[in-house]
Design a binder for these strands. Sequence first.
DNA 1: ATCCAGGCCCGAT
DNA 2: ATCGGGCATGGA
Length: 292
Amino acid sequence: MEYRSENGNIVIEKSDSFVISQTLECGQCFNFEKLGDEDYVLTAFDRVLRLYEKDGKIIFEDTTEEDFKNIWIKYFDFEKDYSGIKSFLSQRDKTMKEALEYAPGIRILNQDFFECLISFIISQNNRIPMIKKVVANLSRRYGRYIKTVDGKDYYSFPKAEDLAGISEEELMESKTGFRAKYIIDAVNRALTGEIDEEKFAALSTEEARKLLMEIKGVGPKVADCVLLFSLGRSDAFPTDVWVKRVMSHFYFDGKDTPVKAIHSFAYDMFGEYAGFAQQYLFNYARQFKIGA
DNA sequence: ATCCAGGCCCGAT
DNA sequence: ATCGGGCATGGA
């Protein structure tokens, strides 16, 4: 990973395997704000980062080399070779190739486990702008103030400890809706250590999925999102309404298809890179409202 | 107004 | 094992 330090910022060359807007706006994360064209502020791992494009470069503003090395390289998956993954996927299938050409700058983020879990619990039967609002509400109320960027205050996403003992009624003040009780269950299991990021390392993707689904409010889709976006399981294939639509449309003759059949097809077609395929397809489907 | 959103729970079959 | 209703909330 080539980077250099410059006036307190970290600078990398722009590449077609990383476009800020595509990576942040493709529905995998919710803790960010758009300031302008290819200019964003995001919160992750107790840091607030403004990053933007300028003169063919990408600037990580007010960031130390330590943070870049220890946090952002992993977060943005910069150690992975996306050109290899993308060429594999685009050779598999024509639809996949088009989805990739539409948004070649999407990278699968490695997000904080607890934040990812709670965020995707919130995501169920919800819309992305609303999910972002709830995540921001929880951060402002229970997280820690980090810094102010462009006149707006940013807060870290709360830890399980920060949410300990909070009542369902209070959580609903942050507009969590019926998911409040699910958040409480996730928090409790995290606090007892029953659900702990360390535990997952020893488990297969399928075993990890089962463990996650013990949490109330975590079903197959939310579990797969957590596996893919925070536990590095690129074989997970989160299948929501949009992925169902795009898969049915392109691979099942437009027929409504059970998730199970979609999964086996995806694993067969995209193998260990199914998760990447899923994200490019999801983005593609949503932009062009395929099947809607 | 009615419908629906990066679903899941729960009770009925 | 599978199916359908219900669910907080707010935007179209």
